[in-house]
Nucleic acid binder design. Sequence first.
DNA 1: CGGCCGATCCACT
DNA 2: GTGGATCGGCCGA
Length: 200
Amino acid sequence: MRLPRSFYLRDDVVVIARELLGKYIVTTFDDRLTSAIITETEAYAGVFDRASHAFGGKCTPRTEVMFRQGGIAYIYLCYGMHSLFNIVTNKEGIPHAVLIRAIEPVDGIDVMEKRLGRNSSVKNFTNGPGKLAKALGIHYRQSGTDLCSDSADRKESNTWIEERESIPINGQIRVTTRIGVQYAAEDALLPYRFLLDLIR
DNA sequence: CGGCCGATCCACT
DNA sequence: GTGGATCGGCCGA
């Protein structure tokens, strides 16, 4: 079941970040379907969050995507070489987003191996936001892609989030501060990072 | 228009 | 544990 727009339009981006754990991210680039369980997320809470690209209402050609209606992808280039995949949430005008930081591959693992140039048996195969985007065939050119359109629309999206059967979980969801946001002063201390331990 | 640097990753030590 | 890769976005002039 592909998640509907209403899932993303809700007000609390922190709740949405937590709820995205255990959901499946699916892409269909290169005529190959790849899917994976989301196991790590971070919430970025818009204009009042010093760690957000939209802090203070900063709206540029890059960050403008975050100000649109929830349920689309905000993807940007980091360190000149990594595409980082975020999901925009909340209503138009409120630039909330959730960064996906780790996934557990499910479908199309051979394609992911080809894209990453390594075997999936290695530890940390798709942890880290840059690697997982590459594994899924995601590129920052695709920023703004809708995650909710389906075959009833003119153009079906090639990236979406869906819910499947319940996942075996190891213990509780872990909550920590976000990675790499020390510049964000007191907001760097917010408990906005969520991690899921899968039983494997 | 120049220059700095980032929500990273990997190889190498 | 560290540094190199590699480049668009953003700011200040």
